[in-house]
Design a protein around this nucleic acid. Sequence first.
DNA 1: TATACTTAAGAACAGATGTGCGTCGTCGTG
DNA 2: CACGACGACGCACATCTGTTCTTAAGTATA
Lengths: 200, 200
Amino acid sequence: MLEQLTERQRKVYLFIRDLIHNRGYGPTVREIGEEFEIASPNGVMCHLRALERKGLIRRSKREARAIELLGDTGPESLEGLPLAGRVAAGVMHEAIEQDKRIDFTSLFQRPGCFVLEISGDSMIEAQIADGDFAVVDPNRKAVSGDIVVAQTDEGNATMKYWFPEKDHVRLQPANSTMEPMYVRDVQALGVVVGVVRRMS
Amino acid sequence: MLEQLTERQRKVYLFIRDLIHNRGYGPTVREIGEEFEIASPNGVMCHLRALERKGLIRRSKREARAIELLGDTGPESLEGLPLAGRVAAGVMHEAIEQDKRIDFTSLFQRPGCFVLEISGDSMIEAQIADGDFAVVDPNRKAVSGDIVVAQTDEGNATMKYWFPEKDHVRLQPANSTMEPMYVRDVQALGVVVGVVRRMS
DNA sequence: TATACTTAAGAACAGATGTGCGTCGTCGTG
DNA sequence: CACGACGACGCACATCTGTTCTTAAGTATA
């Protein structure tokens, strides 16, 4: 991504990036000029425009230090947990391979996602138990068979299987002792994309 | 560290923190005022002074958005997903409270922990399904009833309930169609402390 | 009850800041 | 040579922004 930049633009970008990471907030136009001995603010503007045009940064108009880094996953750190392998079928690896890692947070970190704590056993047969945390993606259209968080017009929210039928929606619990709900005015607040359980 | 803050100060701090981490740059004094409906910039200054005095932030004088977060170990600590509330029992909160967050990675980040991918349905009645990820803590002594990853002397690893009995251990699957194993030479590689499932 | 702290309004000001206009020089390309 | 890019200067302007001062209500503390 940085290849299409000129050398000067690259250095400016790296300067901004380092400042944001190390100092916590970005530079002003004139601060950049000071660093690179560019006397005119407009000289810097030229670079910022180029960086924005090439998709490396985003800026808010007329706002101080409002430089947002795009496509920047932050300082590389070994986050997550080591992924050891598969169990119950094969042989354990003697040593845990440290190079394969899994980061649960980034696994679910999509814009808008949020977490709900599950209450009750209505989804028990879908392996979602009381006390589990469900990751919900509100930016996703529910399709038939999805597990969704649905909200009826009374304001009650509930987690069920989502089955649109004719002029209503069947909200089916994953619990054979419970009956499905048939509702007309209902919306899916989001689709359940993950489940996290903490034991101990 | 946040205990010595008033409720108002805490919320202001969290607002700043979230903005820096999600948007990439911090707010101006008046932006904070807008968020909390504080009409006067000085009302906000008051909070910023308090936060600086209590050591949560550092500011550069007379510089826009020059708020530096202190005692913040970087993006990893502020990652996580907003925790919205409980579902299936009550009413959804209209707005998701941004200040309550849950970070799955740090939730399980204990020294030595590792992750295994589950294969098979032997623990299905414990709501652990094929393809799930199990977080295993090897530094924890298994007690009767724990779900453990057990390794027999042949080198096979398997996930089962752990029931020590007399001169052997009963390894009980959570699947009524399967039979328990009775083994003598077995050790628990670790106790399952978490389960993570990714759907979609 | 008196004191201190927190929270906030309103007004005013100096300086910081982003932005636009015009101009200029250099370099590589056709 | 002309042309377009990149890089930069200088200037000017409108806001944005931090800051300070004064006042004041509410709350907790001693």
